[in-house]
Design a protein around this nucleic acid. Structure first.
Lengths: 327, 327
DNA sequence: CTGAAAGCGCTTACAG
DNA sequence: CTGAAAGCGCTTACAG
């Protein structure tokens, strides 16, 4: 037996298909007894309206798009899970778009729009002007998740990356450390740049010289780079924009016989599951990335409901998880 | 300016909308000169056909559904990435469904069907009979990814989990170990059960007593459990169904002063990124989960194209990555 | 090779 | 409170 159509339900219930549709979309407009009969038959037959037809007719698909550069990063997975759980709450389903930073952004964005979603959660904050222009003309609301838009037409949800990096750097300075290294990412993510800005600010305020390197996401490349770095340098504290990179650095240092945290303290950003599985366990700033995804989806539903709601930049509270890699 | 419709393209090109549609769907049926003119205008206007309308009219959405129990597990992320990359190749887009094992499976499955996807990649192999019946009646092809279906109506893609666990256990026995522990998962995943079966077979063949415990995915719970276990036991080799669990066990052992690999060897399954970030680095069976996702999507396109292609069970080659946690 | 027309399965003013 | 009808933006036989 094929999937039941709205006609089948209408026929079985002895009402018109308009009424079945109303039961689903505006139940308060239908008399209680009819409504209950229709609902019973819907349940019996396991009827679900066809998403395409519904989307076409109503111009609302109750679907949102998630656009991410990869799905491999633990932080991104957690964000997606946060979005998914929140979407479930609000009755939205998900279309997933993964576009590598080196793919055609414009093309991807066109696909996202053509997929007729009601809203877009965007996580990637490096884009060319052409893409930006397309985003400007997107007919549905867009929210930047754990990312920042260069202009303020869009809402965003993230932690206060700059303030946070500033504070943790200052804390380590106050504890008597001077030689503090910041490891950024080769890729120019706006949020990682903000971390570096906060770090620099704290260093300069204290009259210390900022010292930064940039690393790729590739573990074996990192190991070579970090070993070379440690051949000539011995930082007291290492602050890394990503905790997987921090762990990789820590492992390299440990293997050289450097004692963590006694001779070198290491701090990461994000607190993904890696942090807890590291040895020693990594101290890090917890970016509540699940909550960020969760909140972004909630904010998006507001924007999708009301055209006149102002998009806003939401900061989520973070905290520092002190573990074994600091003293 | 709003998104252009097919009418706009037809108007600008001086052809009927049927022709525009043909250019997109059956280009060989259109005269070259018309085709090129239409394509030029499509490009100029950045036209993309509305996915809902297209899906409704053609009954093909060029969208597939991925159904997973969570997105938080590294192995699942890698699988999704494999699917996504392959889908991009074949021109399919993705709908993501996450259903916790404790949610209503039937409800989720109905949603998946109603979303009118052309095929389904399913990763979760514990389900009740009602769900199974629904799956039977699914109007589109289904493939089990890194999972096994209880009956053979469906294709699947995975490694030979049983054979693999058998072989690695046998290898460790041949190296002179007798006290080998297998750590499974509390949740009854068919593929983890297969690993245990392979392990038991190798142990029994060698006249050794199998010894298994089951662990949850929760790190802090595991640590308590593993400590208790180590209070009374001292396995020579630990084989774990999941590498994150193996690392957690290894960390607990190390902290108790047990030397890995000299006094205890630890082997994981999967080889997610955790394995490379562990200290010592974990030896494990590499489940090429990215390839599994990739291949599953490729197989699915075959099934979606041809009704009469037989679904099959595909085994993907695996290998053992010997690292520092074994000697 | 191309156009006119029916139809995909819904939603939603509009009447009553 | 309910039904008949138009329409959402496409695709695809059917004619020509």
């Amino acid at each position: 037996m094929n999937q039941p159509k709205i006609y089948d339900i209408a026929g079985a219930a002895g009402v018109s298909l308009a009424t079945v549709s109303r039961v689903l979309n505006h139940p308060e407009k239908v008399k209680k007894s009819t409504r209950e009969k229709v609902l019973r038959i819907i349940k019996e037959k396991g009827y679900k309206p066809n998403a395409n037809a519904r989307g076409l007719a109503s111009r609302r698909s109750t679907t949102v798009a998630i656009v991410v550069p990869t799905v491999l990063r633990a932080s991104i997975s957690e964000m997606i899970q946060g979005i998914v759980d929140s979407a479930k709450n609000f009755g939205y389903s998900i279309r997933l778009f993964v576009n590598d930073e080196d793919e055609d952004q414009v093309e991807t964005w066109r696909e996202v729009i053509a997929s007729s979603v009601d809203g877009i959660l965007f996580m990637s904050d490096e884009m060319d002007d052409e893409t930006y222009e397309l985003i400007e003309n997107t007919p549905v609301p867009v929210i930047f998740v754990n990312a920042i838009s260069k202009n303020s037409n869009y809402g965003s949800v993230s932690i206060d990356n700059e303030g946070c990096a500033y504070r943790i750097t200052k804390e380590m300075i106050d504890r008597g450390n001077k030689n503090i290294l910041f490891i950024g990412t080769e890729h120019n993510y706006a949020i990682n740049n903000l971390k570096e800005i906060g770090y620099r600010k704290a260093m300069e305020e204290a009259g210390l010289i900022p010292n930064t390197i940039k690393s790729s996401g590739d573990i074996s490349k990192n190991e070579v780079q970090f070993n070379e770095y440690l051949d000539n340098n011995r930082p007291e504290v290492v602050l890394s924009a990503r905790d997987s990179i921090a762990i990789s650095f820590m492992n390299v240092a440990t293997k050289r016989g450097i004692k963590v945290p006694d001779e070198m303290q290491v701090i990461g950003f994000q607190n993904t599951r890696y942090a807890e599985l590291s040895n020693p366990k990594l101290t890090c700033v917890e970016t509540p990335i699940y909550e960020i995804g969760n909140k972004a989806m909630a904010n998006l539903t507001q924007l999708m409901k009301n055209e006149d709601v102002e998009p806003e930049n939401t900061f989520i509270d973070y905290q520092v998880i002190w573990r074994e890699s600091t003293k």
